[in-house]
Design a protein around this nucleic acid. Structure first.
Length: 477
RNA sequence: GGCGCCGUACCCAAGUGGUAAGGGAGAGGUCUGCAAAACCUUUAUGCAUCGGUUCAAUUCCGAUCGGCGCCUCCA
C-alpha cells in the first residue's frame, strides 16, 4: 500500500495518511445543490474528488465514497432575503420542487459520467434523511449546545471552544456581518440555525414536523447527519470546495463533535476555484459555463478533465478557451500515442504490472509518487508523457504502464480509438473510388492528378494519410 | 476591517536553498513525389519589483506593486 500524503486543511500541512481502519477509507464529498445545472467550476471539484478516490483505490484502499444531494433550502439572493433557490426554480418552471431536484440531479450525474467520474458508493438526498438530522439535532440539544430564539433553534458557538479551528478563525477580531446584516435573534454572530420554524421567505415548499415545530433543517446539518449515518461518527476524509472552509465545514465540525464528543474527520481536503479572467465563476453572478456548452463548442468532456488535471487542485485555475484548445490537442496527442503503441503490439498480450521492464516500472513508480504527494496531477501527467515518449521502454511495457496510469487519471485512454468517420455508405464509396483513382495516378507518377484528388477530398473534409500498407482516410471535424 | 492564495518562457503549468518538469504553439532539420504522422534540434543566465539572511535564493524573511478568493447560498 502506497503511503499517501495529503495536504490537510486542518493544520495546513501535508500529513501522512493513516486511515482509521487499515486498508479502508471513509470519504465524504460535498455534493451539489440541485436547483440548476452544475457549471464547470463546480465540476472541477468533482474531478479532484474523483482523482482522490481513484488514487486511493489504485494504492489498494477500499474506499467508501459518500456524496450528498442537497435538495432543500438555500437562499437565492446575495442579500439573504431572497426566496429559497429550489422554490424559485420550481416556480419559474411550474414544477414541484422535487421534480426540479430530480431533473438537476440527473443532469449532474450525466455530466460527471461524461467526465469519467466514478459514481459515489452512496448517494444520499437531504430530503430523505430529515429524520436522521432531527435525531442528530436532539443529541446536540441534549448536550446543551443550543438555544431557541425567534422560533428557530440555534447552535451556540461559544459553547464549542475550538470553534473556527479549521479556518483559523479568531473569534475576537472577526467582523461578522461585514457584508450582511446579522440575524438579531443570534446571541453571537457566528451562531447558526439547526432548525427553522420561522422561514425568512414565504411558502417554504418542503416542511417537516419536529420537536421544535414544523419547519426545515438548517443548512449544515445534513452533511453531519448523513456522513455519520454511512461512515460512522468518525471517518477519514472530507472534501469540498475551498469556499466551504470558513462557514459550512466549520459549522459541520462544531455540531458533529458537539453531538458525539469525538473527533469527527481526520483529513480535510479543499479544492481551489476555477476562475475566469474577471473572477470566479458562480451561479449567482455571470460567467456560467456548463459542460454542455463545452461540448457544443466541439470539446470532448474528457478534454475538460485533462485541462483540470493540468493544474494542481489547490491552485486556482484560470479557464480560457485557448487553454481548452491546448488541453484538447494534448489529450488527442496522448490518445494517438496509445493507438500507435497498440499498433506496434498488433494484438500481443500486454504484460502484467509485475512483469514490467525497468524503464516503464520506474516511470510508474514516479507517477505513483506524484499522486501520493498530495495528488500532484501535473507531475503525474508529465510522467505519463515521458513514458509514452521514452524509446527505452518496449511498446508492450509502455502501453501496460500507460493504461495503469490512466486508471488513476481517468482520461479514457484504454478506450481510445481512431476517429471513426461518420460518413454515409454512398459517400464512402465515392471516397474510396477517388482514393483508387489517386493510387493509379501515383503509380503513373502523375503527381498533379494525385494532388488534385487530394485537394478534391480535402474539400469534402477528408484527409488522406499514405502509410506503408496503403492509404487511409478520415473525416476532419 | 479580518483571513487566505497567487505572480515562472508566446500560452497553460510543475518545481527546488545549489542553479529551471511536462504539454500546447512557433522555428529549423530528418523522412515522405506532396501531405500527415513520427523522430531530432531549438525557444526563461531567468522565475513581478526592491531590500535582507546565506558560501549559495527563483526557492527563506521583509517591503512594494499587481491579480484573485473567502468573511453571505456558492465547488
Amino acid at each position: 500500500m502506497h503511503a499517501i500524503k495529503p495536504f490537510n486543511t486542518l493544520g495546513r500541512s501535508a500529513q501522512d495518511f493513516e486511515p482509521i481502519q487499515p486498508g479502508k477509507v471513509g470519504f465524504y464529498g460535498c455534493g451539489p445543490t440541485v436547483y440548476n445545472y452544475a457549471h464547470i467550476g463546480n465540476l472541477r471539484t468533482y474531478v479532484f474528488e474523483d482523482l482522490l478516490v481513484r488514487s486511493l483505490r489504485r494504492f489498494g484502499y477500499e474506499v467508501t465514497h459518500v456524496m450528498n444531494i442537497t435538495d432543500v433550502g438555500h437562499l437565492s439572493g446575495d442579500d439573504d432575503t431572497g426566496e429559497d433557490k429550489m422554490v424559485r426554480s420550481a416556480k419559474e418552471r411550474g414544477e414541484s420542487v422535487l421534480q426540479i431536484a430530480r431533473f438537476y440531479t440527473d443532469a449532474f450525474f450525466r455530466d460527471t459520467g461524461r467526465l469519467g467520474i466514478a459514481r459515489p458508493t452512496v448517494v444520499c438526498k437531504a430530503t430523505e434523511h430529515v429524520a436522521d438530522m432531527i435525531a442528530l439535532i436532539q443529541r446536540i440539544e441534549a448536550k446543551g449546545y443550543t438555544y431557541m430564539s425567534g422560533g428557530n433553534l440555534y447552535f451556540d458557538v461559544t459553547k464549542f471552544p475550538t470553534y473556527g479551528e479549521l479556518a483559523n478563525l479568531r473569534m475576537d477580531d472577526l467582523k461578522a456581518g461585514a457584508r450582511i446584516e446579522v440575524d438579531e435573534n443570534k446571541k453571537n454572530p457566528h451562531d447558526f440555525v439547526l432548525w427553522f420554524t420561522k422561514s425568512k421567505f414565504e411558502n417554504q415548499a418542503l416542511v417537516w414536523d419536529s420537536p421544535w415545530g414544523v419547519g426545515y433543517p438548517g443548512w449544515h446539518i445534513e452533511c453531519s447527519a448523513m456522513s455519520m449515518k454511512y461512515l460512522g461518527e468518525s471517518f477519514d476524509i472530507h472534501a469540498g470546495g475551498i469556499d466551504h472552509v470558513p462557514v459550512h465545514h466549520t459549522n459541520e465540525i462544531a455540531q458533529s463533535e458537539a453531538a458525539t464528543g469525538k473527533k469527527w474527520v481526520n483529513y480535510w481536503m479543499h479544492a481551489e476555484f476555477l476562475i475566469l479572467d474577471k473572477g470566479k465563476m458562480s451561479k449567482s453572478k455571470g460567467g456560467f459555463i456548463t459542460l454542455q456548452s463545452l461540448v457544443d463548442a466541439g470539446f470532448d468532456p474528457l478534454d475538460y478533465r485533462y485541462f483540470c488535471l493540468g493544474g494542481h487542485y489547490r491552485s486556482q485555475l484560470t479557464f480560457s478557451w485557448e487553454a481548452m484548445e491546448q488541453a484538447k490537442a494534448s489529450r488527442k496527442a496522448l490518445a494517438d500515442r496509445i493507438l500507435d503503441l497498440r499498433d506496434k503490439l498488433a494484438g500481443q498480450d500486454i504484460p502484467a504490472v509485475s512483469a514490467l521492464g525497468r524503464a516503464a516500472a520506474e516511470r510508474l513508480a514516479r507517477f505513483d509518487d506524484a499522486l501520493a504527494d498530495d495528488l500532484a496531477a501535473p507531475r503525474a501527467l508529465a510522467e505519463l508523457w515521458q513514458l509514452v515518449r521514452d524509446s527505452q521502454a518496449p511498446a508492450a511495457d509502455a502501453l501496460a504502464a500507460a493504461l495503469e496510469m490512466d486508471g488513476a487519471l481517468g482520461l479514457g485512454l484504454a478506450a481510445a480509438r481512431r476517429e471513426e468517420a461518420s460518413v454515409d455508405p454512398e459517400t464512402v464509396g465515392r471516397i474510396e473510388a477517388l482514393i483508387a483513382a489517386r493510387a493509379a495516378a501515383k503509380k503513373a507518377k502523375n503527381w498533379a492528378e494525385a494532388d488534385a484528388i487530394r485537394g478534391q477530398l480535402k474539400e469534402m473534409s477528408i484527409a488522406l494519410e499514405d502509410g506503408p500498407s496503403g492509404t487511409t482516410w478520415k473525416k476532419l471535424a
